[in-house]
Design a protein around this nucleic acid. Structure first.
Length: 261
DNA sequence: ATGACTGCCTCTGGCAGA
């Protein structure tokens, strides 16, 4: 069973690419970020036509997340990250589907820094940690997957010096991410590729794709019950090289089916 | 050395992204 994440960077501009990816790779669950549409503009019927049920949390102009399920309708368990009633960004959507709890996240970028955007990022990460602790306490297979906007290690970026001043690589950002792992969450891709060198994002600028100047910021964190079932994980890199591609590539984890009974 | 691209919703330029 494949659980995938794809920062689509505008679902309207990217719909043909997105449908193509779904049909080619057929993930059981697809978590989307940066759909950049209001709820009423979400093309749910296009996904229905190819057999996917969907829930979504949109917003005008930017942000926005959605979860698709192959042959099923995900059951929404939470919309929005708890801990700040003033936070009106659409960045968190959580569902139950196929016996899993799946949280689709779009963590704030945090640039420029210092400033309110970086403060918001760190506050969001503190809230995420608290909520993920509550998820872990459920002792169920849970997957918190999406665009974390954190480069966890130097081996997760083509050139650490090029990104050293960026919010994605600040010690505070990395420490908050490392704390999640210390709490017991498993970074699937880091576990399977400990030496790094696996990217999920390539900038549109400066020929970054052609030069393979990328980094890893899309992550799947697994609860112990989900990590026990991890079979494989990877990045659908070739989709980044297509016409009208997102600047992110899809990433995925494959979990063993739950034991019968 | 520098800047470099893309999508969105339009105050068709400014913001956001990373």
């Amino acid at each position: 069973m494949k659980i995938a994440s794809f920062n689509i960077n505008g679902i309207k501009a990217r719909l043909p690419r997105l449908l193509e990816w779904l049909e080619e790779t057929r993930p059981a669950v697809a978590c989307l970020q940066e759909i950049k549409t209001q709820d009423e503009g979400f093309p749910a019927e296009e996904f229905e036509k190819i057999g996917y049920g969907a829930v979504w949390h949109g917003q005008k102009g930017f942000n926005g997340v959605a979860v698709l399920a192959d042959g099923a309708m995900p059951m929404e368990t939470r919309r929005g990250l708890p801990g700040d009633p003033e936070d009106d960004h659409s960045r968190y959507l959580e569902v139950d589907v196929f016996g899993l709890r799946v949280a689709c996240i779009y963590l704030p970028n945090g640039n420029p820094l210092p400033g309110p955007k970086f403060d918001y990022k760190l506050a969001w990460m503190a809230r995420l940690r608290r909520h993920m602790a509550a998820l872990m306490a459920l002792e169920i297979p849970a997957v918190v997957i999406g665009d974390y906007n954190v480069i966890p290690r130097d081996c997760d970026v083509w050139n650490p010096r090029a990104m050293a001043e960026d919010a994605l690589m600040q010690p505070q950002s990395r420490d908050a991410y490392a704390t999640l792992l210390a709490d017991g969450w498993t970074d699937a891709l880091a576990t399977h590729y400990p030496a790094g060198g696996v990217w999920t994002f390539w900038d549109y600028q400066a020929g970054a794709w052609q030069r393979d100047h990328g980094f890893r910021i899309d992550h799947a964190l697994l609860s112990p019950e989900a990590a026990d079932r991890l079979l494989a994980c990877g990045v659908d890199k070739d989709h980044r090289g297509r016409e009208k591609a997102s600047d992110h590539a899809p990433m995925w984890v494959q979990l063993r089916a739950a034991d019968a009974g």
